[in-house]
Design a protein around this nucleic acid. Structure first.
Lengths: 218, 218
DNA sequence: GTGATGGATTAGACACGTCTAAAGATCATC
DNA sequence: GATGATCTTTAGACGTGTCTAATCCATCAC
């Protein structure tokens, strides 16, 4: 049995490894709004429990057990988000915090029943894939907006779930999952780009933002 | 903001006061599977937060604030139980533990949406009343089976929610919410009674059991 | 009243997760 | 390969919630 804090750390590691190639102690700390020293302690603990390998000063890698556990957390998180949006009428940009709490209710039967109830969805309201019972993910062939070039016409497939601010920003520009947009220009000096929603005015997004936007060719 | 443990203690106090006239430290401890000394500490803390009055060696009484908070916990607990049974197909005797966890996700919007989604039910699957948004309870005019006399024909209205064992016992005898039964005999020396389900064989229940069975005239 | 009894409280300890401050590694740059 | 910047870890402390053991209190039988 993992404590809530252990689960939070495990999920942060998983998310950072998904995102980039490494999970830095300070990034984990920042994500969990805690301090690096606390993270070190926790990594040691998770390593002892066999959920990850911790090479001091070098980094951290999930074990199969750790990855599996993280995937179950992600599964629960995204199923709850889907439930909150589809059945309780919440907006996709206001469910993250709630799901963050609900995901810690660990009960396989509950999770599976919820999954059935929702029709075994493959993607959550943010467009992110929902791992199945076995932790398998049905991937989409999407790419980061930050890797796209001027002139490309794209559709938004997913938005990194941890950034509610980004969701609201997009919403205010009339963009949501499935919306179409065109890349007008990419500025080499800072990686920012100008994009134009199909039915709206062009605006500029920072590299930070485009990095978190998953798109597919329209 | 209350911690999970504070909420658990508050709810235990509320439940015991509902049940009998007083909430003994040792009974709270037993209910929470903890020790009396731990409970004393917690009562002190809850008293400082203005949720209850703690008269050392004498007892404990909820303040309006404490009662209100407890009612919200009960509300959430019973709404989740209703959801689990009605929408996810759980049995009424297996939802208690899960609801015990879900109730701690405190978010008014979520609670109200769930309430709406379920059709603002007045009673949960155990037959217990669900407090509304304002903490108001729609009472049934039920009485404890333990107070009934031989010859009375009754219908089961509710079963104390904290005793899953009782639920299974009843189920095995063919009894559930709404089932009809007749009191055949009451044994004065130990308070036990013989009851006969409408469509089933008579059996005997202890005072402990009959105390937790809410019935109404059939 | 006096004692016995049983519940309640206090005192002191401990595990856990967090923090700050200090020390240890790594790496880019000169 | 020394230096400084930055990140990581360690050492030691603290708050919280729990425990055990000892003490305190109310009550009931006599």
């Amino acid at each position: 049995m993992l404590t809530r804090s252990e689960e939070d750390h495990l999920k942060a590691v998983y998310a950072l490894l998904q995102d980039g190639d490494s999970a830095l102690t300070k990034d984990i700390a920042q994500r969990l709004r805690t301090k690096a020293s606390s993270v070190t302690d926790m990594l040691k603990k998770l390593a002892e429990k066999g959920l990850l390998k911790h090479e001091p000063y070098y980094g951290v890698k999930l074990t199969a057990k750790g990855r599996s556990h993280a995937l179950q957390l992600v599964r629960r998180h995204r199923l709850w988000e889907t439930f909150l949006v589809q059945h309780l009428g919440f907006g996709w940009d206001e469910v993250h915090e709630l799901a963050e709490q609900l995901e810690h209710v660990a009960n396989d039967k509950l999770t599976d029943r919820l999954d059935d109830h929702l029709g075994k969805p493959a993607f959550d309201p943010h467009g992110d894939p929902i791992p199945d019972r076995q932790g398998r993910i049905r991937e989409r062939k999407t790419l980061r907006l930050s890797l796209c070039k001027a002139g490309q016409v794209l559709r938004i497939a997913a938005v990194s779930e941890t950034t509610d601010g980004l969701l609201r920003l997009l919403d205010s520009k009339g963009l949501r999952i499935g919306s179409q947009l065109t890349v007008q220009e990419v500025h080499a000096f800072d990686g920012s780009m100008d994009i134009k929603p199909k039915n709206g005015a062009a605006f500029s997004v920072s590299k930070e933002v485009s990095h978190h936007l998953q798109v597919e060719p329209a």
